[in-house]
Design a protein around this nucleic acid. Structure first.
Length: 218
DNA sequence: ACATTAAGTGATT
DNA sequence: AATCACTTAATGT
């Protein structure tokens, strides 16, 4: 066994040992490769084809939709143990991505070439469950995102955004600017600034330049 | 000290 | 809730 394979096996055993059956792990070790991707890098853009699927080991990917130029809306975040099931379908049908994925926090993942994943569906029960599960989870998040858009006011959306971010980064101290939040929520900086101040005064958060500490709601 | 970037605010739609 | 047109505060060089 070469070094690369050993790394993959080791990494897999950490987070996926109870998820995948032995034979599947063997296959993953055989065809996958391990890679690290720096924060800020664009993984997949709308309209592109996917060649590999990531099994995320560490870090965060921000998945968003872009309607027009400059108008972005964050749908959900992917973290350890996740994969992008949506991109998975892109792979099988050779369809282009309807979403954009940007690395939000330095990421480590095992990348699997798309040509295997279809075949594995029939071959491995654990793979099937993993994919369906992932799909289900993504659907729930998508519905939450729709609810948030349709029924929640901006201040509630903002609070949800912040608490989601805390959950995913496992840190109540967020390093983010009002402008960045505005972009993610498809709002404007001024509006976010006012709502942040409101939340601050209500004691739900503590805000200062480039920093927000979330005190409740997660 | 100066320039740049982030955040705060009143008025208007 | 968004936009404009500023002001003020914080940070980097």
């Amino acid at each position: 066994m070469n070094n690369q394979e050993a790394i993959i096996r080791e990494k897999l055993s950490h987070y996926y040992a109870n998820v995948f059956e032995e034979e599947l792990i063997d296959e993953i070790v055989r065809v996958g490769y391990f890679d690290k991707i720096k924060s800020g890098k664009l993984m997949i853009d709308i309209g592109e084809n996917m060649t590999h699927i990531p099994l995320i080991l560490d870090g965060v990917i921000k998945v968003s939709r872009q309607e027009k130029e400059g108008e972005e809306l964050v749908l959900y975040f992917l973290e350890r143990g996740d994969t992008c099931a949506i991109s998975f379908v892109n792979c099988i049908n050779r369809k282009k991505s309807i979403l954009r994925g940007i690395v939000e926090q330095d990421m480590e993942a095992i990348f699997l070439p798309v040509e295997y994943i279809d075949n594995w569906l029939a071959k491995f029960k654990t793979w099937r469950y993993f994919i369906i599960d992932s799909y289900h989870y993504r659907l729930i998040e998508m519905v939450e995102s729709i609810d948030s858009l349709a029924f929640m006011k901006m201040n509630e959306r903002l609070m949800k955004y912040l608490t989601d971010k805390v959950k995913i980064t496992k840190d109540v101290n967020l390093e983010i600017t009002h402008q960045e939040i505005a972009n993610d929520l498809n709002s404007s900086r001024v509006v976010i600034t006012r709502l942040i101040k409101e939340l601050h005064n209500k004691g739900k958060i503590v805000a200062s330049r480039n920093k927000i500490r979330v005190l409740e709601g997660f």
